[in-house]
């Protein structure tokens, strides 16, 4: 008999295989060309890294509504530095230094935002959904003020490589995503912080009495969440070759959708990186498959929603079935 976690992973795996076969069937051989696989590998990382940023907060029974707003602000900071200081006359080495500096500034911004969220949630004790609703609006406001609502475009070549390059046949964003996911998995499964994140998600009071420094754990959680949003930001500006205050707003609820589809409990305490990755692959397969069939993006959204509800229903039904077997 499978435990709850295994059976959910199993459902997810079956859905993935099913979707893959269905899309293959509908599209024929063009679905499994190198070109299509590569284009999927270009698209998945943005939502993927943002979903990791969302997931880690959901594990603590929180949520981070500000990830998109922070990503945009970080992207704007990076893009502003780049467009202001990198000119066609700048030499290669100098450009590289500036790129590194700009990216560092963007990531630093994301860390500061993470600390702000963390402080509101861990120290002021505001519920995460409210705190990040506030910071979401504030950060979006700051981004608009800084850019006056305009697009900042024209980034130097090395930055564009981050979002559009290919290394050994693998798109750079995919490599970044794999690293991010691996680091997150390691962090959650093999570090003190990771174990504490799961435990706090289930019962913060008992953690407090076991000597866990809850405030510190929550601070770190939102800091990491912010940092991941920052990393996603760099990929985003690179792929768009620009930054703007309202890019990717539709991603916000999709990250929650992906996390939940990947088995992350909205009540906290449970969720695995590997399942999230499967969930992201499912979403990407649907999206690319329908795209090849030239079906509207919006229908893709609808189908994602239907998949989420179907998987939740299957999980609910199997759990009920198991409980009836135990108690009845």
């Amino acid at each position: 008999m499978f435990s709850r976690e295994y059976s959910e992973s199993l459902t997810l795996g079956l859905v993935m295989v099913g979707v893959l076969l269905l899309m293959w069937l509908l599209n024929g051989s063009q679905f499994v060309t190198i070109g299509n696989l590569q284009s999927m590998a270009f698209q998945l990382p943005e939502l993927g890294i943002l979903s990791l940023a969302m997931m880690i907060t959901m594990l603590t029974a929180g949520i981070n509504l500000s990830i998109i707003a922070s990503a945009n602000l970080c992207g704007i900071v990076t893009a502003l530095i780049l467009t202001r200081y990198v000119t066609p006359e700048t030499a290669g080495a100098e450009t590289m230094a500036l790129v590194v500096l700009a990216i560092a500034a963007g990531l630093l911004t994301s860390v500061i935002i993470g600390l702000l969220n963390g402080a509101l949630i861990a120290i002021v004790d505001v519920s995460p959904i409210l705190a990040t609703l506030g910071t979401m609006t504030l950060l979006n406001g700051v981004a608009i003020v800084v850019t006056k609502g305009y697009v900042i475009s024209g980034l130097p070549e090395p930055v564009r490589f981050i979002g559009n390059g290919v290394v050994l046949g693998i798109p750079t964003p995919m490599i970044i995503f794999i690293v991010c996911a691996a680091v997150m998995a390691l962090l959650l499964n093999r570090t003190r912080l990771g174990v504490n994140i799961y435990m706090i998600g289930s019962n913060p009071t008992a953690c407090y009495f076991a000597g866990v420094n809850n405030a510190a754990v929550l601070m770190k959680t939102y800091l990491i969440s912010g940092l991941y949003a920052g990393i996603a930001a760099i990929i985003m500006i690179s792929r768009f070759n620009s930054a703007k205050a309202d890019y990717g707003e539709s991603y916000l609820l999709l990250t929650v959708l992906a996390s939940v589809l990947g088995g992350t409990s909205a009540a906290g305490g449970f969720g695995k990186v590997s399942d999230l990755v499967i969930a992201l692959i499912i979403l990407q397969l649907v999206s690319s498959g329908l795209n090849l069939l030239q079906i509207s993006n919006f229908l893709t959204l609808a189908i994602w929603g239907i998949i989420l509800i179907s998987v939740m229903v299957v999980n609910h039904v199997t759990q009920q079935y198991r409980e009836r077997r135990v108690t009845a």
Binding site: N189, Y198, S202, N203, G269
Partner: peptide, 29 residues
């Protein structure tokens, strides 16, 4: 409410107080 994290595993509940002592040379559990 205070003693145990009921939904989590027995094992995790036992080691939650001593995670620091269970780290290897890389700082991993």
């Amino acid at each position: 409410e205070q003693g145990l994290i009921m939904k989590q595993s027995i094992g995790k509940n036992i080691v939650i107080t001593i995670l620091k002592k269970l780290l290897n040379e890389f700082g991993l559990i």
